[in-house]
Design a protein around this nucleic acid. Structure first.
Lengths: 344, 344
DNA sequence: GTGAAAGCGCTAACAG
DNA sequence: CTGTTAGCGCTTTCAC
């Protein structure tokens, strides 16, 4: 229950705790090499473990970064966190993760919790493009930098990094068409998430390119959860319209749709291709002829942490920056070339 | 940059910081109701946010629980963390997540980091059943309780909670057989993870039950990563033996195997069923006729946190406990009944 | 009921 | 090079 402190070490060696502190900090300028060595050895021998809490209190910072994500089901955020953690730890930062569950109230609670832990900065994927923007501003005005990633945030002075959703969406839908699909249902994301509009935009763009008719009935509100996705799928099926593919905004929603199709005895994947984008990942949930998911998630994580660390290092000369990762990054890893198909 | 402190509030109101502290703590015994109200209102007005760091230093505890997981790709651990976080937050605990990346050295670093953050307790899924057991003992001797989950730990005085791996494995393999598979490759988990042996055991048990021959050539070391899984698959394919299903120890390894099969133009899923267990989840990665994954992960998370919280509350009367969640929990959610099949 | 004072473990400014 | 001192923000005796 009892930890060894620098005072214990000082007493043991008959020197002052300042010297111990300096030695342990590796301050070669101000500590005789032999003292240094002696202190470090004694510390090890006695099993000393620095009390981060005390250091943080004294230093008035926490060397901790908060990461807020909207859900923890999809592997995208997990990957993101892992990459970000690696980058941050390399700079001596710890991380604390908070999940908002796609709920703006919980999102506020997350932020408050992080402030109470006195995090030095925040990486955040919002669950609403504007709902909490006032609170974001408050947090930032207190000197805590925020970098938003993946989902767009309207009207903010913070840095952001997200994907070129239009291009990515174009790529995915084109892939469906080239593999023979013609009647593609789009499970539209909620309007309060900016990316949804862009992905719909990409969807329409491709239809146009291939001279396929755009029928609004094929675009249904798919929500964010598996339940909403399932309901959306059921709603669409009731229209009786023919379809051979589903392109969803969220992986979770598409998973919901999938369960409905299975329950209704659609012979997936022979009949229906299911795919979606999840963060920077293109997910083909079922159809085997579509190549596997591409995840340049690292790029997003690196960029986001870099922006945050830069801001942390030079808070004075900060200028908000919006980095749009090219949608083509996804193409880069595509193993098989797209089958040629005449643009009708 | 500047946070409001209790001293600021005290000054504002012309009272002592002790009273402010008591009022904010809701100590109705020692604070006049009106003072109480006044303080709380002023605090809110001034935007006061309690400095957790200071509280923790003073209280000599952190109200923080560390969670150590071996990887962050699979959704199992994400789900686990989310459930655990919910339970812990309800008791006023924060969580800090550390990933060992299936590496015993990194695992030690994780533990050390958590100790330096003075976590009050640890939930842990080990990456080796015994390698770091000495360190575990050290941590525990310092008064930090550990509860191990999912993966077995040999020779420990800590509480554990894991699945009945034999039964779960039996269920999964039986499912494969009942859906027509006969030649099932088993991507065996590494020997240093106790669960691997149990799952192999289940595999063999089912073969016996259905009077299918057990051929050791169908059992290949599948490792833990996608890369290892891929190599294992390639190795097996080179034997030229016929197979129609793959049952893997880890989801990651099976994902690796899947990529190989796709590259080699196996027509998944028509030809080969792929499945695995991941934590408490049964995953059918491709084959649609097998019902979707069942995730009684919550049960494991609840149990683990309960054990930890109990130990935290009554450290004196602690007795190590091993909870084995029944493998049948997985059957519970199975939607379709298993097709009947004569035991040959 | 309230205030004054001590101190959690550590760092950093200032003397020597 | 080393020691002394003064806090970081908060809780918690102990007086009054």
């Amino acid at each position: 229950m009892k930890y060894v402190t620098i005072i214990d070490i000082a007493r043991e060696l008959g020197i002052s705790k300042s010297t111990v502190s300096r030695a342990l900090a590796g301050d070669a300028q101000n500590v005789k090499p032999e003292t240094m060595k002696l202190v470090c050895e004694t510390a090890r021998r006695m099993g000393y473990q620095r009390n981060e809490t005390a250091v943080n209190l004294r230093r008035q910072l926490s060397k901790t970064i908060g990461i807020v994500i909207p859900e923890a089901i999809t592997s995208f955020f997990m990957n993101f966190i892992q990459c970000a953690q690696r980058d941050l730890r390399a700079q001596g930062y710890r991380t604390i993760i908070a999940v908002s569950n796609e709920d703006i109230v919980q999102e506020r609670e997350c932020l408050q919790m992080l402030e109470q832990c006195r995090v030095d900065g925040i990486l955040m994927c919002v669950c609403h493009s504007e709902a909490n923007s006032k609170m974001f501003r408050n947090v930032m005005s207190r000197g805590i930098p925020i970098v938003f990633f993946d989902r767009h945030v309207r009207d903010t002075a913070a840095s952001q990094v997200h994907l070129d959703d239009v291009t990515a969406s174009v790529f995915m839908v084109e892939k469906l068409i080239r593999s023979g699909c013609r009647y593609i249902v789009h499970l539209l994301g909620p309007a309060h998430i900016g990316n949804a509009a862009d992905r719909l935009h990409g969807y329409r763009e491709v239809l146009e390119k291939f001279n396929l008719p755009y029928n609004p009935q094929y675009v249904v509100e798919g929500g964010l959860s598996a339940e909403e996705g399932a309901r959306a799928m059921e709603r669409f099926i009731q229209t009786g319209l023919h379809f051979d593919a589903v392109f969803g905004f969220t992986e979770t929603a598409v998973l919901g749709a999938k369960s409905v199709l299975q329950r209704m005895h659609f012979r997936i994947p022979e009949d229906v291709s299911l795919c979606c984008m999840s963060g920077t990942a293109l997910c083909t949930l079922v159809h085997p002829t579509l190549s596997a998911a591409h995840q340049p998630t690292e790029e997003m994580a690196h960029t986001a942490t870099r922006l945050l660390l830069e801001q942390l290092a030079h808070p004075d000369q900060f200028k908000p920056q919006t980095v749009v990762l090219p949608g083509e990054v996804m193409l880069r890893e595509s193993t098989k070339p797209l089958p040629t198909l005449e643009t009708v």
